[in-house]
């Protein structure tokens, strides 16, 4: 589904990621940990072709990212739902319009019932007509998750999704991600919140990847 083969990534200042080889299998649940600035966000961006590797091969759904045209990248992103810590919305559109944005840009008809069900699932059904600036941090994160999954993507990537949330809200978001994984979605969550990882491992067979010294390693079982 997503595979890295001897991938390195360099910014102007030097190499941030080096010699990364891994494969995210369909239906798997991975956490990605590491200190701030270690390259977690960069790794996620490589996963949805926002960045291209300096060397090595990144393959998304059997296509090498360098061979993808700009249109093909857009089509690939429709199969990958992304949730950022500072999730951004179109502030002039309502919450429901923002959540259904992936359907809008794909030219797919929006089913009001499905949208309502999705908003109810993330607990935002009563805020469907609200504008994004009116939402709290937790509501924005859940809205971002709803937007990320409305197209029924194969992969969900979340970058510090609980960074701005309290523990209760973090658990609620984690529960939603676990439910999605049980539906067969591949989930990769970048976080430095070890309590969240422990909580998840108590519910599902999540694997933990750790970025250290520019490389990604499989973390020990002590988490």
């Amino acid at each position: 589904m997503i595979s890295f083969e001897n991938v390195a990534y360099s910014y102007g200042g030097g190499e941030l990621l080096s010699d990364i080889t891994l494969r995210l299998a369909p239906g798997s649940f991975h956490f990605l940990t590491g200190p701030s600035g270690a390259g977690k966000t960069t790794f996620l961006k490589l996963c949805y072709a926002e960045l291209l590797p300096s060397s090595g091969r990144v393959t998304l759904f059997d296509s090498e990212v360098r061979s993808l045209t700009r249109d093909a990248v857009a089509m690939t992103r429709r199969r990958i739902g992304v949730v950022h810590q500072d999730c951004q919305f179109l502030d002039h559109l309502t919450l429901s319009a923002n959540v259904s944005l992936p359907l809008t840009v794909a030219g797919r008809p929006e089913a009001p019932r499905d949208l309502a069900d999705l908003l109810a699932w993330v607990g935002l059904d009563r805020l469907a007509g609200s504008l994004p600036p009116q939402l709290s941090g937790g509501e924005r994160q859940r809205a971002a998750l709803a937007r990320a999954i409305i197209m029924g993507p194969d992969v969900i990537l979340a970058d510090e999704p609980t960074g701005n949330l309290d523990w209760e809200m973090s658990l609620r978001l984690l529960t939603l991600l676990v439910e999605l994984n049980r539906m067969g979605k591949t989930v990769l969550v970048a976080t430095h919140d070890l309590n969240l990882i422990r909580q998840a491992k108590s519910q599902i067979a999540a694997r933990v990847l750790r970025i250290a010294k520019r490389r990604i390693q499989l973390a020990g079982a002590d988490l």
Binding site: A74, R77, R78, Q88, L90, L101, P102, V105, M151
Partner: peptide
């Protein structure tokens, strides 16, 4: 630019 970033993230093509 931020709007374009969001649209790209959700799979909008350049032509759209």
């Amino acid at each position: 630019a931020q709007v374009i970033g969001v649209l790209r993230l959700v799979g909008a093509r350049d032509s759209y």
